[in-house]
Design a protein around this nucleic acid. Structure first.
Lengths: 101, 101
DNA sequence: GTTTACTATTACGTTATACGATATAACACT
DNA sequence: AGTGTTATATCGTATAACGTAATAGTAAAC
């Protein structure tokens, strides 16, 4: 009934980045900047990452070097799908009301 | 280049509500609840309203009773349009990466 | 070998949001 | 008229996300 989680920009962007493939922090940053021209600072990025990890939506993988690759968990994929659909519902009504759809 | 404002859920919903027609606070709440099943508490609602007003995206109209109807300003309409397009860009890439588009 | 880029962590200040308490006006019902 | 209920808005506070920046170490470049 009631929705708690707002769809915060950084975490959503991170999830979408990981929806394509596993990536470590800086690679996520680059992907987001390349695709949307949005540059997340390290605090924003890693803060969001650790919250997402705590929530179980992403998980960290083994690595040989100091990079920490993350992947989207199944739970994260489900969550992301729901979120996006919800957001699309909102934006499509918005477009309609703006007379642009 | 860099984007500052995240697309926060409550304020976005309020703007979309006002994109249809002018409404006062409680009517906005009802509209949002009816359309999305999202119930904003008074603090969330009026807090977001006053920030939006301060930003110049909505403005308050005269009224005879104690209701305070708001309307979307021209600036707000432009802002909302941009926001929605940006969000749609994000979600559509998300859907693609999820294999759902 | 020294500098530059990559990668991650941490700390701190700001602010939106969630939640709840309060206040009052309008309305319904008896 | 009086009482209760709904509609409407304001205020206060706690939490947590976010933005920015400082720090540190490793890898790469030159």
């Amino acid at each position: 009934m009631v929705k708690k989680n707002r769809f915060s920009e950084p975490s959503l962007l991170i999830l979408i980045s990981l929806a394509e493939k596993k990536r470590h922090g800086y690679a996520i940053m680059d992907d987001i900047e390349k695709n949307y021209d949005i540059k997340l600072g390290p605090g924003t990025l890693y803060g969001a990452i650790s919250r997402l990890e705590k929530a179980g939506y992403i998980s960290v993988l083994e690595s040989q070097d100091r990079k920490k690759p993350y992947k989207l968990t199944e739970e994260g994929q489900i969550y992301l799908t729901e979120q996006i659909k919800e957001i699309q519902k909102v934006t499509s009504l918005g477009m309609k009301r703006l007379g642009l759809a």
